[in-house]
Amino acid sequence: MSDKKPKRREFLFTASYAVGAVGVAAVIWPLIDQMNPDASVKALASTEVDVSSVKPGNTITVLWRGKPVFIRRRTQDEITEAKLVKMEDLKHPEKDEDRAKNPEWLVMLGICTHLGCVPLNDKGDYDGWFCPCHGSHYDTSGRIRKGPAPTNMEVPKYEFVNANTIKIG
């Protein structure tokens, strides 16, 4: 058959391109992946915080994985206010019970879910937090109520090691 040779050549070309593409991808991947968080960054996964000195109505800010975490000891008024909010009024509906297992303590990443600024305490139209960058208002449960942020402030994984110590991460 006269067309056998070109076919064989085409097969060789295609096979060469395929092997070449796999080779290029294999070389590029380490160059891309080196930019991902490295082992030393990942190793700083958890932080323990002593909260015994925090009085009701006060917030402390601690650094966890380079990010600020708000730990607020809420007053009874704030807890009531957070619990009374109707789900249909929320942009990102979450119950207060689900955000603060122990209602007295609200632990969340102090990072506005819009573009990552640190919101200010006791500010805004909902008695919670206000982000000065682009005007997002959060309530006493750290839920987004008004402004461009799409979701509530994130609650990280944490646990009470004992009555006075919170372990984040």
Binding site: M35, N36, P37, V41, R65, G66
Partner: peptide
């Protein structure tokens, strides 16, 4: 996080 190489800048 790829751009940052971590969990924050």
């Amino acid at each position: 996080s790829w751009l940052w190489g971590g969990f924050a800048v």
